[in-house]
């Protein structure tokens, strides 16, 4: 008998297989089949949901409450919708200190204000001690559709823009657990990506926030659906110093580390420079860079390739298993 392993939830291939093999056959319909972060419903409404189970609850640069708002907000933004309303469902473990709960609620409230969304419905459940871990949160989000991603319009020469450094959230959470005798100034990048909304009106072709699975998984899933390979340049990819250090020290590849305030934007070739300028103008986009392009000089259709710093070329795979530090 097979059992659910942590791996299924890691955002890797097992999860992709689960969705393709179990979810789609069970529920498949034209809206679900798009498998986008948020869906556009009839009537100009966009809809999404996400659950949050981060451990520890609080970490430098964020906490579970802030994450629960921004994660859902960002799913709407990158799908072409202006976030408006959220639901908030709390699953609490018996024995949780009320101070902790208060902090989480305050954080949800502040994040919702910052992202200009209102919490309009919700639910609270308590489970026995040991049957949950302190606080789990689910939020659903509703937004106003402003544009549809146009995958079919992506052409040779279109540019891949990354809105900032990779992996800061992943590392901040890992270090907040106090393991590995490692400390640094890293902070989670957890933030709302509302500043990307205007790009839709200016002709953005596709966006995706870089969360679980990291940049490699996001771009791999895009490449799979295109008629051209995507080539990214390792030396163009912005990394913060703490992430660079931890990735070398612990042997964790930053291309697979999660962010909570970064996105990939596919810009039409002619507009890439303008897009980059606009993104960089915002404080959250200051480190943005064109990291690659849709092209057909190397690779085959559907492939994601990396030009390494040293001048080599290799394929990038999606995340296949949970990130574990290695020593040997």
């Amino acid at each position: 008998m097979t059992k659910v392993s942590l791996e299924l939830g890691s955002g890797g291939r097992l999860m992709r297989d689960f969705i393709a093999g179990k979810i789609l056959p069970s529920f498949g319909n034209p809206i679900l089949d798009e498998l986008s972060d948020a869906v556009h419903l009839p009537g100009g409404v966009a809809f999404t949901t996400d659950s949050y189970v981060v451990d520890p609850l609080f970490f430098p640069g964020g906490d579970i409450g802030r994450l629960a708002v921004n994660g859902t907000v960002n799913d709407l933004v990158v799908s072409g919708a202006e976030p408006r309303f959220l639901s908030l469902a709390l699953i609490l473990e018996e024995g949780l200190e009320t101070d902790v709960l208060d902090r989480v609620i305050r954080s949800v409230s502040a994040a919702a204000r910052a992202a200009n969304v209102r919490i309009v419905t919700g639910d609270t459940k308590v489970v026995r001690r040991g049957q949950g871990d302190k606080v789990y949160i689910n939020t659903a989000g509703v937004g106003r559709s402003v544009a549809r991603p146009r995958l079919g319009k992506i052409r040779r020469g279109d540019k891949v823009i990354l809105t900032g450094t990779l992996g800061d959230h992943s590392l901040a959470v890992m270090l907040a657990r106090g393991d590995f005798g490692l400390s640094s100034s890293v902070r989670s990048d957890c933030a709302p990506l509302l500043f990307l909304l205007p790009l839709w009106k200016k002709g953005a072709l596709w966006m995706r926030d870089v969360t679980r699975g990291g940049l490699a998984t996001v771009l791999f899933e895009l490449a799979e659906r295109l008629h051209y390979p995507i080539l990214v340049e390792e030396d163009k990819i912005p990394l913060s110093k703490p992430v660079r250090a931890a990735s070398e020290l612990l042997g964790i590849d930053p291309f697979y580390m999660a962010c909570e305030g970064k996105a990939v934007v596919i810009a039409p070739a002619a507009k890439a420079a303008e897009f980059l300028r606009l993104i960089r103008r915002h404080p959250l986009g200051r480190k943005a860079a064109v990291i690659g392009e849709v092209q057909d000089r190397v690779g085959r259709p559907g492939e994601l390739l990396l030009r390494t710093e040293a001048g080599g070329l290799r394929l990038l795979e999606p995340l296949t298993s949970e990130l574990l530090p290695r020593i040997c």
Binding site: L182, P242, A245, L249, L250, G251, I327
Partner: peptide
């Protein structure tokens, strides 16, 4: 077989414990 990195010693006490600075991060070291 063995991942290891070059780092600068920032702290070293009499018992041989301390920290190194590796690309701006502090790492406990023996």
């Amino acid at each position: 077989m063995c991942l290891a990195v070059p780092a600068e010693i920032t702290l070293l006490d009499d018992s041989g414990q301390g920290t190194v600075n590796y690309m701006g991060s502090e790492v406990k070291a023996n």
